[in-house]
Amino acid sequence: MTPTSPSSTPRAIALQVLHKLGTALSVLIGAVTVAFFAQTALPGNRATAILNIRAGQAVQRTPEELAQINQQYGLERPLVVQYLDYLVGALRGDFGHSYQQYRPVAEIIGEQLGATVVLALTAIVIAWILMVVWVTLTAGRGPRVGAIGSLVDVTAAALPAYWLGIILLLVFALGLRLFPVIGGTGPAGLVLPALTLAIPLAGFLAQATRTEFERALDQPFVISARMRGQGDLGVRLGHVLRHAILPAITLTGWALGATLSGAVVVESIFSRPGIGQVLVTAVNSQDLPIVVGIVVLISAFYVLANLLVDIAYTIVDPRLKGAAS
């Protein structure tokens, strides 16, 4: 997560990128491994579960019934074989077939991924807008405004998504009827779920940014900009903000992963389609190929997001840039 000190030669940079990719890959293989073996530790007999889910009855099953399912899903093979088979498949983007839907997991996830990614990205964008506006307005404006500003930051950051979501739903959808109660995938259905994720995130980013912002306000380059006659807002947006948002950028890479998992809660509250909904349903019904597929996918996202953050960091941070050139 921390930016590595850049080297000057292209060869060194290439090596560094290779190293990062290697790390990313090993993390992913590790994630697949952990997720796969976690599912084998699940209680009960998997073939029984598959049959019962399909029948909606919780009963024991006869050996003949079980044998058929075991054979169909290759559950009687040695675990190591199942694992290797799975790993090779996963690297090709094949996560097996859902026990319940008979369909490739990759296809199921593919269908649902879009809605969740849109939700997560929208939430991050809204969080940034809220955060930038709020911090620019309230940071470094004397103790009283600052106190209110940071109180709001801290409170917003402490709001649990599951509670905030229900309150927003209750007030704006059920009470005032401003938004649909069944989110769906349209823009109107996106507002409340995205806000639910964005508000705590904004508060959280604002905490990190505010400190930096106040520190940057006292920097020489700010004073010189003011002396050149630049207006307060101009200075804040043009110079201070650029310096103050560095920690927030780092945190955003992490936030993408966290927001994707926050989507689990939010999608369930707002009846919104997405991988969160699929995941909860799958956990509830032990449709393990789906659970593992989603877990691996989110981990991959996290790894990717952090690679991107490393890159963004080098672009935004003038000090690092200076060092590199």
Partner: peptide, 13 residues
């Protein structure tokens, strides 16, 4: 008992 456990045969004996 959550559905997953129930259908996996928890508490069935």
């Amino acid at each position: 008992v959550p559905q997953a456990e129930l259908f996996a045969g928890a508490y069935s004996t």
